[in-house]
Design a protein around this nucleic acid. Structure first.
Lengths: 221, 221
DNA sequence: CCCGAACCGTAACGTACGGTACGGTAGACG
DNA sequence: CGTCTACCGTACCGTACGTTACGGTTCGGG
């Protein structure tokens, strides 16, 4: 054999051609004009349905691969481990918050979460679990080291990093995600995201800061 | 004519028999064993499909009526307007928080929200808007008067009641709703809800309290 | 040049389900 | 008792869609 771009069953990386197919799925999902059907995917990706089934097994496999593909593209940068003072912590938290708000308010994330929520109802194929693992839990695992480093540096106080993170999560997201998932028109402009990120960070410092919150950046409410 | 329990098109109250049908829908939704199909509803409610269509128009009408029916049953009591001191405010907030956590972690709410989220994707029939109006926005409109009364009494400080409420919403719900919607196993016991409600209220006071937070109740973290 | 693998495009199949039609029954009313 | 209304149960229809099958094309290897 020359090469075998066969089934993508495991968590392999997709081939370039397979990525094109997954991008087509995302495009259809975001457009949302009509329901995501295998025929539509095949037409959009200029491939045959037979190929779809050969590569991804079935419709759920295609959706799962799409979620993983999307998740692999939004890996946000980590924080700078060096020189962790109050200002650096604050900036890292704001970056995390702004990045998270960007993700959950993106049309792609909304569409994918809607599919996953719908799937969680029927129980089959752990799509919801995958979305959670790559969203809520992934960001938690990336943020907790920062929180713990900050605690070690005496910048903040908490008992459980998990609890501190969940509070931060709530302060950042508030009602944004559920409103967007339920179809509420909610403008999340760049400026709005920046303001929300700054506010959430400021409130987080107010709750967990060891002493005073670091100096506010310009444009605070 | 004797009586005409015809179409329930507007926001009328359902007849007792119609309520039975809507309860059947909720039961099927909560069980979640299989997709909610008109045939299944008819069988479960011991009524004919023809009657379903006569009463509710179509499947969306049935779902809409079900959401309204469920919402009409969870109207939580308002707060006591008299004697608004710090302790009363604190207790009201905790009650709101605990009630809200109860609602969003109930199997009924989860199932209904999943349906509404799925529907928001396809765009037709404003199910998501109805859920939002009876959930997120209804509680906001009921809580904001309390917040404003508390501000008038000098117990808390804020500029916009909406912003203060959204912060409270985030502190209470955190990641609970999205995790439940995505199928995460998340035990929300009575004790856990009470603890979360107390924590969220305490944090809210820390952020918006005029002076010191009122005395903590027993069992604080 | 020939062969087979991979793939495209499309037709076909089976089923699930929303929606409709129809026959049968129980009770209200004259 | 006759009739009408509301309703139940069920058969039926049309369509959408997941899945499979098949013919045709391209391309790399022998």
């Amino acid at each position: 054999m020359t090469q075998a771009p066969q089934t993508i069953e495991p968590s392999d990386e997709p081939t370039p051609r397979q990525s094109e197919v997954l991008d087509a799925v995302l495009a259809l999902l975001v457009e949302g004009r009509d329901a995501l059907t295998m025929t539509a995917v095949a037409r959009r990706a200029s491939c045959s349905k037979e190929t779809l089934y050969k590569w991804f097994g079935d419709r759920d496999g295609l959706l799962t691969a799409t979620v993983r593909w999307q998740a692999s593209q939004v890996r946000a940068g980590n924080f700078d481990r060096q020189r962790l003072d109050a200002a650096a912590l604050r900036e890292s938290l704001e970056r995390f918050a702004a990045n998270w708000l960007h993700v959950i308010s993106s049309r792609t994330s909304i569409a994918l979460n809607r599919v996953a929520v719908g799937h969680a109802a029927s129980g089959k194929s752990n799509l919801g679990g995958i979305v959670l693992a790559n969203g809520r839990f992934a960001i938690g695992e990336r943020l907790k080291p920062l929180l713990e480093a900050a605690r070690a540096a005496g910048l903040i106080h908490f008992d459980e990093a998990e609890e501190a993170f969940r509070t931060f999560f709530g302060l950042v997201g508030r009602d944004v995600q559920i409103r967007l998932l339920l179809g509420d028109r909610l403008e999340m402009t760049e400026a709005e995201i920046a303001r929300d990120a700054a506010r959430a960070t400021r409130q987080f410092f107010a709750l967990y800061g060891a002493k005073e919150a670091p100096a506010l950046t310009a444009g605070q409410v």
